[in-house]
């Protein structure tokens, strides 16, 4: 090997390292400009996605936006309790943090996968989450499974996975082992919950009982349920057709009447009820960063953009 060739090689290596480091330092120190947004009479808490810092911002009822110091991939607040699913370093790489109304961390638990959904019951006592465990793909190469857990703050119980619950699918007690659960929402009694159960290529909306550790299917095809504050309706995403895009729909629990939400086509989120008549959800506009929209829960009117470059809607 000639000396000249080796020197050129070393020079090229050094150049790449210098340019790469320079670029990364430049992007990391660059301040992101807050993205445009709309107004919400109810206020909104969300994760800002403009600059890679994942700040939790609050949009006030008057449209003013306050930047927070908390950094999360997924956030939700209710009853004075905030749940924050976030990156935690090298191992475990993710964790769930529970914060009280003063912003102090009450509890953290390591998570086995990428944050997906987070929810706090209206009382602030039951904190639940769903993560994607990527890599334990047994059915399909490159596939995934979900892990859904919750903390009961009344006695500090941590349940890391619902997989030990007894599920009844269409009246039959489930025996198969590859059942996935995701998107929990807990009712006012802090015991009744709704969630999604997936097995094979089928998904169901399930209704369950935390104390009894049981659940049974309610209807097929409905995912990521979200109970309304009055407890009478459930908002969920469902596919238009077998492989179509998701769309938001609201089910009236008493009458069983399902109302599709217009303009929500292409959304993928566990919707948040900002009040008894307003839903907020993330959707990715074609070729753009994810954004948060709100829609009337009765299926009237148009979707309104609340925050661009944002995800994880929550009541303020």
């Amino acid at each position: 090997m000639t000396r000249r060739r080796m020197l050129s090689g070393v020079a090229a290596l050094v150049l790449v390292v210098l340019l790469g480091t320079g670029y990364v330092l430049w992007t990391v120190t660059k301040e992101g400009a807050a993205a445009a947004g709309g107004q919400s009479s109810t206020g909104l808490r969300f994760v800002d996605q403009t600059d890679g810092r994942n700040r939790v911002d609050v949009l006030a009822a008057d449209g003013s936006r306050t930047a927070g110091s908390l950094r999360c991939q997924r956030v939700y607040s209710a009853g004075g309790t905030t749940v924050c699913l976030r990156l935690a370093g090298l191992g475990p790489s993710y964790e769930v943090a529970v914060l009280d109304s003063s912003g102090a961390t009450v509890k953290t638990v390591g998570l086995p996968g990428v944050p997906s959904r987070a929810r706090v019951s209206a009382s602030g006592k039951i904190v639940s989450w769903t993560v994607f465990v990527v890599g334990d793909s047994y059915a399909v190469p490159g596939g995934f499974s979900t892990r859904t857990g919750y903390i009961d703050l009344r006695d500090g119980t941590v349940v890391e996975s619902l997989e030990h619950f007894t599920s009844t699918i269409e009246g039959k007690v489930e025996q198969r082992e590859n059942v996935n659960y995701w998107g929990v929402t807990v009712a006012e009694d802090d015991n009744t919950f709704y969630a999604t159960l997936g097995s094979g290529s089928q998904n169901w909306l399930v209704k369950g009982d935390l104390r009894a550790k049981t659940m049974e299917t309610v209807r097929p095809g409905a995912e990521c349920p979200s109970l309304s504050p009055d407890g009478k309706r459930v908002a969920y995403k469902k596919r238009a057709g077998s492989l179509g895009a998701w769309q938001l729909a609201v089910l009236d629990l008493a009458s069983g009447k399902e109302t599709p939400i217009p303009n929500s086509h292409g959304m993928d989120d566990q919707a948040a009820w900002l009040d008894d008549s307003t839903l907020a959800y993330a959707k990715v506009p074609q070729g753009e960063a994810p954004a948060i929209y709100s829609s009337a829960a009765d299926g009237t009117g148009e979707a309104v953009l609340l925050a661009a470059s944002a995800s994880s809607p929550s009541p303020p």
């Binding site: 790449v16 670029y23 990364v24 992007t27 990391v28 890679g52 994942n54 990156l87 191992g91 790489s93």
Partner: peptide
Amino acid sequence: FAVLAWLTTSPEPMFVISFCFALLGLI
């Protein structure tokens, strides 16, 4: 995970760092 936890979750720097390592290998 070091970059995500301590630097940024923006995708561009991650892809650029990965590209730089690939380029070093190629060199």
